[in-house]
Design a protein around this nucleic acid. Structure first.
Lengths: 144, 144
DNA sequence: TTAATATAAATCGCATGCGATTTAATCGTG
DNA sequence: CACGATTAAATCGCATGCGATTTATATTAA
């Protein structure tokens, strides 16, 4: 059972697949709200701390401007966020939640947790995975 | 510590991030070979069983033809695989490895495992994560 | 003070990933 | 046989994701 070339024994593939499954689950819930999964992650970040700069949002989500700038534009067009270029330093752009994003927060997170409940994930399982994944991430980043 | 709305406490985000880190690591290694990470997954599947149909490859990798068809075309253009439409049933298309994919197998997998070694992931950690992720995947799929 | 650097965001090109539709071929049932 | 249903792949449109470059602004050092 030490066949490390088998697809089903690849940790990278297990994570790739699980990530894809999560995306599908979240997409199911978010689609009626007119949100994508990455856009929901942006909202999660802003619900936690509104008015982040594009750069900070990028650091929080591990995304570059090549991904964020167009995504934020779409979210602005859909009324979720608002961009505001700093008067003091015009290189900086702050992203603020719009009223819609604050109003819908409860409904969105409610639907998400309902859907997650149907998966019957044990708290212990959840926390252990979270811990192990963070440890793995650290190792992936800190190599070299 | 029961703040389930915090980005860093989201299992979905931990998986999303870890998947992205893995992709970066693999991309580092694969880029010199002219391969992307999803293309490498296709090779992994075909090294295990050559001559899969597009449909079977899709089932193996959880990908639809909207993703696979253009990707396979690129891999064909780059000399990794070959498409062969079945004579018996012209709806079916078999994907075969080309010589290059067989010849480079050892070099590619060698480089990948070297890179993974630098992460110092314990065997126990690896196997436990694999098991837990498979269990989680089952739960995500089997809800409803 | 200004010229070189550095920083922040935007832009560009390319490769996924996916839902939905289309096209082509085969199957199944009357 | 024949025609509607099914199946397999291709195609389409849209939204990421990312490396690389460009643009605009601010900082710094001579």
């Amino acid at each position: 059972m030490d066949d490390f070339l088998t697809l089903k024994n690849q940790l990278c593939f297990a994570i790739y697949e699980t990530s894809s499954e999560f995306t599908k689950l979240y997409t199911n819930v978010l689609h009626p709200f007119g949100l994508t999964y990455p856009q929901y992650l942006v909202l999660l970040a802003l619900w936690e701390k509104d008015g982040l700069k594009v750069k900070e949002l990028g650091e929080t989500l591990n995304l570059g401007t090549g991904t964020l700038t167009p995504m934020i534009s779409r979210m602005e067009a859909n009324g979720w966020v608002r961009k505001e270029r700093s008067k003091v330093d015009e290189r900086k752009v702050y992203i603020h939640l719009q009223a819609k994003a604050k109003e819908e927060k409860k409904a969105i997170t409610q639907k998400i947790s309902e859907e997650l409940l149907t998966c019957k994930i044990e708290l212990e399982e959840y926390e252990q995975l979270l811990k192990q994944l963070n440890q793995l991430q650290r190792k992936l980043r800190e190599r070299k």
